[in-house]
């Protein structure tokens, strides 16, 4: 069977892991990556250990995908790190780490994946951003700035890659119960949830649903968009 090939970054846990399992269930060949090993096994899933900001590592991964399966249909840039801290207390090294993983990593994967998708004249790229961008959430300056950059990158790439049959869209989840927000105080989370039209945590299924929508064959005319969950 000619399975669509879907590449997901940051698949060791959380949203990325769920999306990897979700697309395997839908019959895709899923390629995932993270800085560490993947726990357990998953049929039709191949894991690479790579840092998303390592240019040579990313190039090698995408070259392997092209050589092994001859196609790359979908890319989900999920890998990301957050920093929940007041800007005056945020070390420069943290700002660099957040920008490098979230912005440079997303850029590199988009660039390399688009080269393979271009030859197929088809591709779907989905970048994960956050509702913290439109909410201009205080206490997360570096993280919000990095995800605002991901949104801008999405919108520009949508234009640059349209001629090659590639769509590029973004998705902004609300807080989801993952490691990323485990350290955030409860009152802060409650305040954040109260700014949503539907004040509840997001689920992995909510996120997968939006990605499914972007991947649908009928969604070929939708590009450069960002869909925020929860009514933000």
């Amino acid at each position: 069977m000619d399975r669509p090939v879907t590449l997901v970054t940051g698949t060791r846990k959380g949203i990325g892991r769920f999306l990897a399992e979700h697309f395997v269930r839908l019959g895709h060949r899923v390629i995932g990556c993270s800085r560490s090993e993947f726990d357990g096994t998953l049929e039709h899933y191949v894991h690479y250990r790579v840092d998303v900001s390592d240019e040579q590592g990313v190039k090698q991964l995408v070259a392997d995908v092209r050589k092994t399966w001859g196609r790359l249909d979908h890319l989900i840039n999920n890998a990301g790190i957050a920093s929940m801290n007041h800007s005056l207390l945020t070390p420069l090294s943290t700002v660099r780490d957040v920008l490098t993983t979230n912005v440079v990593g997303t850029f590199l994967f988009c660039r390399e994946a688009a080269k393979v998708m271009k030859t197929m004249r088809f591709g779907r790229i989905v970048n994960l951003t956050t509702v913290a961008v439109p909410l201009k959430l205080e206490g997360e300056a570096a993280y919000v700035a990095s995800k605002a950059a991901v949104l801008s990158l999405t919108q520009v790439l949508a234009k640059e890659l349209a001629d090659f049959g590639i769509t590029v869209n973004a998705l902004g989840p609300v807080p989801t119960e993952t490691d990323l927000i485990r350290s955030v105080p409860k009152d802060k989370i409650d305040r954040l949830l109260s700014r949503q039209a539907i004040p509840r945590f997001g689920t992995f299924e909510d996120i997968a649903n939006v990605v499914d929508f972007y991947f649908k064959p009928e969604s070929g005319f939708i590009t450069g968009q960002c869909l925020y969950l929860g009514g933000v």
Binding site: Q56, K59, Q60, A63, R66, K67, K115, K118, T119
Partner: peptide, 15 residues
């Protein structure tokens, strides 16, 4: 540029 990169990868095994 993209097709030359890919051809080099295929012929020389260098990325």
């Amino acid at each position: 540029v993209v097709s030359v990169e890919q051809a080099i990868e295929d012929e020389f095994g260098v990325s």
